[in-house]
Design a protein around this nucleic acid. Sequence first.
DNA 1: CGACAGATTCCCT
DNA 2: GGGAATCTGTCGA
Length: 201
Amino acid sequence: MAQTPKPADPAVPRLGKPLKRSFFDRSVHEVAPDLIGATLLVDGVGGLIVEVEAYHHLDPAAHSFRGPTSRNRVMFGPAGFAYVYRSYGIHWCVNFVCEEEGSASAVLIRALQPTHGLAAMRRRRGLQDERALCSGPGKLCEALGITIKHNELPLDQPPLALHARTARPETIVGVRIGITKAIDLPWRYGWKGSRYLSKPF
DNA sequence: CGACAGATTCCCT
DNA sequence: GGGAATCTGTCGA
């Protein structure tokens, strides 16, 4: 018999204070590791960020590398907004735009540990396994209902919400996944030992 | 303008 | 491990 989680259930950790857009007004290489352990919610559904990747405008693997297009233009605007794009024609992926002197950089959110709205995530994903709900950039967008409608939305206003971590997790660094350019840059960050990563480090 | 690669995922073998 | 699904930007004819 499955138990209904109670408010005091430690599996649903207390949320930290809301992150302001100014959190993203600095180098993507500082923001990316600082996001590990923060909580991302969309209409109250989401979880702990356990894996991200940094993309910088001087980085050939970044969408912003060749300049603004209709797809990536939000990357060239102010920090603290969502950049959502279609991946392989099928999936959505979400980034958080950072800015350091017009750097056109962003952090790709690659995996979450589900904590809020598990039932909604299971319904959207069509599966039960908690570890499979948000263990990839396309998976987590499906689980949270993120689509192009969320592109260019501010990260500190509904339906989006970000909460600071309440403790600093041990993080691990590695090379990015699924790219063919600049494959050696160690710009993937993860929560060390997490069971919810897209792939092991 | 056509071809093709790509910050992916799922299902099959 | 391999292939399909099929949107967006880039490059070559």
